Amino acid sequence: MHGPAQAAWLLVALCAATGAYCLLRMRSRIEEQRRTAGGEALMGFGMAAMAVPAAVVAPPRWAWLVYAAVFGGAALQTVWAARANRHHLHHLVGASAMVYMSVAMATAPGAHAGHGGTGVPLLTGALLLYFAGYVLWSGARLAPRAVSSVAGGPPVLGWADRSEVALACRLSMGIGMVAMLLTL
Rank of each mutant, 00 (worst) to 15 (best):
Met1Asn: 03
Met1Ala: 07
His2Ser: 10
Pro4Cys: 01
Pro4Asp: 10
Pro4Ser: 10
Gln6Ala: 15
Gln6Pro: 06
Gln6Arg: 15
Ala7Ser: 14
Ala7Lys: 11
Leu11Gln: 06
Ala13Asn: 05
Ala13Gln: 05
Ala13Arg: 03
Cys15Glu: 02
Cys15Trp: 00
Cys15His: 01
Ala17Trp: 04
Ala17Pro: 03
Thr18His: 04
Gly19Cys: 06
Cys22Gly: 04
Leu23Glu: 12
Leu24His: 11
Arg25Glu: 13
Met26Phe: 10
Arg29Phe: 03
Ile30Tyr: 07
Glu31Val: 11
Glu32Ser: 12
Glu32Val: 09
Thr36Arg: 07
Thr36Asp: 05
Gly38Cys: 09
Gly38Ser: 07
Glu40Val: 13
Glu40Gly: 12
Leu42Val: 15
Met43Thr: 07
Phe45His: 08
Phe45Leu: 13
Gly46Met: 04
Ala48Gly: 10
Met50Glu: 09
Met50Ile: 08
Pro53Asn: 08
Ala54Pro: 00
Ala54Arg: 15
Ala55Asp: 11
Val57Arg: 11
Pro59Met: 08
Pro60Tyr: 03
Arg61Ser: 07
Arg61Gly: 02
Ala63Asp: 00
Ala63Met: 12
Ala68Leu: 09
Phe71Gly: 02
Phe71Glu: 02
Gly72Ile: 04
Gly72Met: 02
Gly73Tyr: 02
Ala74Lys: 02
Ala75Gly: 08
Thr78Cys: 06
Thr78Asn: 00
Ala81Phe: 08
Arg83Trp: 11
Arg83Thr: 08
Ala84Lys: 10
Asn85Trp: 08
Arg86Asn: 09
Arg86His: 09
His88Phe: 15
Val93Lys: 05
Gly94Ser: 15
Gly94Ala: 15
Ala95Cys: 14
Ala97Phe: 05
Met98Asn: 03
Val99Gly: 01
Tyr100Glu: 10
Met101Val: 13
Met101Ser: 04
Met105Asn: 13
Ala106Leu: 13
Thr107Arg: 15
Ala108Glu: 14
Ala111Tyr: 10
His115Pro: 00
His115Ser: 15
Thr118Gly: 03
Val120His: 04
Pro121Met: 13
Pro121Asp: 15
Leu122Phe: 13
Leu123Asn: 07
Leu128Gly: 07
Tyr130Ile: 03
Tyr130Glu: 01
Tyr130Pro: 00
Tyr130Gln: 01
Phe131Met: 06
Phe131Gln: 02
Phe131Tyr: 12
Ala132Met: 06
Gly133Lys: 03
Tyr134Thr: 05
Val135Arg: 01
Trp137Gly: 01
Ser138Phe: 04
Gly139Asn: 10
Ala140Tyr: 14
Ala140Arg: 14
Pro144Phe: 09
Ser148Trp: 06
Ser149Ile: 15
Ser149Val: 15
Pro155Arg: 14
Leu157Glu: 14
Ala160Lys: 02
Ala160Phe: 09
Ser163Ile: 12
Leu167Tyr: 05
Cys169Thr: 11
Cys169Met: 13
Leu171Thr: 08
Ser172Met: 10
Met173Tyr: 00
Gly174His: 03
Met177Arg: 01
Leu182Ala: 13
Leu182Glu: 02
Leu182Tyr: 05
Thr183Ser: 14
